[in-house]
Amino acid sequence: MSASEPPKEPVKYVEKQVHLPYCYVAGDYKARYLAALKDKTILGSKCSRTGKVFVPPIVASPESFAPCDELVPVADRGIVTTFCIVNIPVIGRAIELPYVAASVALDGADISIYALVQECAPEAVRMGMRVEAVWKPDGERQGSHEDIVHFRPTGEPDAPLASFMHRL
């Protein structure tokens, strides 16, 4: 005699393999920013109202809502504003643990970029420390963020906290 209902034991789950190809546009601002890295140049965009410089460049200031029409170079050196010491592995990233992930405010920029600080002991890194970019050698730079291998201490005197409070 056939059952009068479906099996008591349910199937627990269904698998769905979602496959989504994309072809992203970088946009002209980011395309020019990335291309300039090949020449060891870091570009920002300057707010037409406040003069603040955003790195990487964006078309409008989120703060003033004015356009940032002008692309300007900023220095490849600056100040560690905040940092953390990473002790856990991240999938897809092959860096020896522990390492320092820092926010670096480049000279001439009004916001910080994310950067690795190496060539010193993690516990030596501090807020206000001066660092500089270590670039890939000539001929190996591709116009990508990886053209900057990491940042390293310059040995210059630390910047006082008050000098970068507004960029934290």
Binding site: V25, A26, G27, D28, Y29, K30, V59
Partner: peptide, 9 residues
């Protein structure tokens, strides 16, 4: 396709 601008731009 706008090849020169991202969505926010």
């Amino acid at each position: 396709r706008d090849a020169h601008r991202i969505a926010t731009e």
